[in-house]
């Protein structure tokens, strides 16, 4: 973990206090009742999405997305040439940076990227690359910066959608929009768009059962072309369940696509009306 010498990070031996306060409550949480979720959704329902572009005035394109309590902001900058690059590249490049804000998660994150955030940055890049026309800006690099302001579950999917909208808002030539969604699997429950508590539950396996499916799958796809652009699975699931889960996710991704399209149309109409 890189040491940040310019900021005060707190003493190294400090731990968040709520791990001690939850000790008595932990033993009661053995059985999780998934028949009704905490925010009264059914299993296959995703949270409401709020999407707005043009949030960051300094960036070429930007987007802000809210999925339930998860809040993610993304900004995209103009293509620029890299000074220390040698050789001419026939294709452009996308550089993605994914970061959780220090106050966004239950446990404070430091200002520099840790391994998990670096991995999410790579996943974000691979999710966006099939959609962007890289041959339109050879030898240039487009920067995409994503910051999660509040992590209440499925922040990676929200980040991918925010980045895709921001790229479209910036006028980067694209083949299509990228939509993403997350599913949490716990036994035979398929929870669409899990919250952070549901994600934590899906990441652990109950003590007494061995043949138990649990895990989280994030799927990013290009719904207009019926292609999957990125898959990310963590947990312990058998292949049939993965197949069913990806079917549900692909269908959900297709349903989300009009939301992104309408948001972009609204932006254009607003610009058009302002010019009048």
């Amino acid at each position: 973990m890189p040491v940040d010498q310019r900021r005060i990070n707190g003493p190294e031996v400090s731990v968040p206090y709520h791990i001690y306060s939850d000790f008595n409550k932990k033993s009661d949480k053995v059985k999780h009742d998934f028949s009704k979720r905490s925010d009264k959704r059914i299993d296959s329902e995703i949270r409401k999405i709020f999407l707005k572009t043009g949030i960051v005035s300094q960036a070429k394109g930007s987007a802000y997305i809210e999925m339930g309590n998860t809040k993610v902001v993304c900004s995209v900058f103009d293509p620029r040439e890299l000074s220390n690059k040698n050789g001419y590249c026939m294709q452009g490049e996308i550089y993605c940076e994914f970061k959780f804000a220090p106050f966004s998660c239950q446990k404070r994150k430091i200002h520099q990227q840790n391994a998990e955030e670096k991995q999410y940055s790579l996943i974000l890049q691979r999710a966006l690359e099939p959609a962007v026309c890289l041959h339109e800006f050879p030898n240039f690099q487009v920067d995409v910066y994503v910051m999660v302001l509040d992590n209440a579950g499925s922040s990676l999917a929200a980040a991918i959608m925010a980045a895709s909208t921001a790229l479209a808002n910036a006028g980067v030539p694209m083949f299509g929009l990228v939509t993403a969604s997350t599913i949490g699997i716990y036994g035979n429950h398929y929870l669409m768009d899990p919250t952070d508590t549901e994600e934590a539950i899906c990441n652990t396996q109950p003590d007494n059962e061995d043949d138990f499916n649990h895990g989280i799958i994030t799927l990013a796809s290009l719904p207009q072309h019926n292609q999957i652009s990125e898959v990310f699975l963590i947990g312990s699931i058998d292949t049939n369940t993965i197949k069913q889960a990806t079917e549900i996710l692909t269908a959900a991704n297709k349903d989300i696509c009009p939301v992104l399209q309408q948001c972009l149309v609204k932006t254009i109409m607003k610009l058009h009306n302002e010019k009048k």
């Binding site: 996943i123 691979r126 690359e129 099939p130 890289l134 499916n213 895990g215 799958i217 999957i228 652009s229 990125e230 898959v231 990310f232 699975l233 963590i234 947990g235 312990s236 699931i237 058998d238 292949t239 993965i242």
Partner: peptide, 10 residues
Amino acid sequence: KISSVVKLGC
């Protein structure tokens, strides 16, 4: 069971 899946490449 499958414990992790990642897609690489552009």
